[in-house]
Design a protein around this nucleic acid. Structure first.
Lengths: 149, 149
DNA sequence: ACCTTATAGTTTGACATCGTACTATAGTCA
DNA sequence: TGACTATAGTACGATGTCAAACTATAAGGT
């Protein structure tokens, strides 16, 4: 009936918790974001601000570990909002170059300011020690999953 | 420029890792499932098998922490596959009663058997101690998020 | 040069999810 | 009994996501 070992059950529980947290925290964050930004869009803006330089959609897809199709869609929506611009890569006829616009930079600032309080509330849920305990294990799991897909 | 304290940044990183793991592990599981079952559908079948009794869509939505609309949609797809049946609740004209069918029970068995190996592989990623370390903190976070939404 | 393979990006169809709005039934209370 | 409020379920539109199929360009090998 239950074909899972105890260890497998623990792993199952772990992934279950992670799924629920992901869902709840995304919904929570998204409600705070301005300009109708989604979590995916906000993440992309943050990435482009922090790691300046030229990014192709393919590199972005790899960085976020989503498919190219998913990245195409998110980039199109951000472009429609005027927060990024895309141009052809003169050195590679297949590729595009993604650039953050000034409006995108401002939107990211506003989003960060709006999201801050939501994150601050979370301090009540987890102590700094809790967070430090969780992060290494989760990174291990994330890296393993990334390498074995 | 970066309006987040160090602690907030750590929390942000934590939620980021959780989001990526959730995405990768769901995609991984879904590739293994038979009958075109999705993770959401599989979770629902598991729930109905383990916790026998009568469940309304509303109770299921609360248990899975999704909206009623989401649950309506998933239940309709499972019903179309013949894995659950729904009937009106004679004691409450608003409510429905969800029941697992025999085909649903068999599909869940098959799905569990198919998912087992994928979970077993994960043992290579995390030791039992790692899992035991992660679960309490994640539960704390999940419960807090659930209570504050 | 040509053929094969790899990579970049888009499109499409299916699903889960949210939030909002809506209908119908229950329950409460004056 | 009648009005207000709460709950159950559904519908809709938007978004993210995947997988698969497709086009276009690049790179390698013979």
């Amino acid at each position: 009936m239950n074909a899972l070992s105890q260890r497998e059950q623990a792993l199952f529980l772990l992934l279950n918790e992670i799924g629920i947290i992901s869902q709840l925290s995304s919904a929570r964050l998204e409600r705070l974001l301005p300009h109708g930004l989604t979590v995916a869009q906000f993440g992309l803006l943050n990435h482009l601000v922090r790691l300046d330089g030229d990014w192709s959609p393919a590199r972005l897809a790899a960085a976020f570990q989503v498919t190219k199709g998913t990245m195409t869609s998110t980039l199109q929506r951000l472009e429609a909002k005027g927060f990024i611009s895309m141009r052809a890569n003169p050195a590679d006829g297949r590729a595009k170059i993604v650039t953050l616009t000034d409006a995108g930079r401002r939107a990211r600032e506003a989003a960060l300011a709006a999201a801050g309080p939501g994150l601050a509330d979370l301090k009540a849920a987890l102590s700094p020690a809790d967070v430090d305990t969780l992060i290494p294990g989760l990174q291990k799991l994330r890296i393993w999953l990334d390498m074995h897909r």
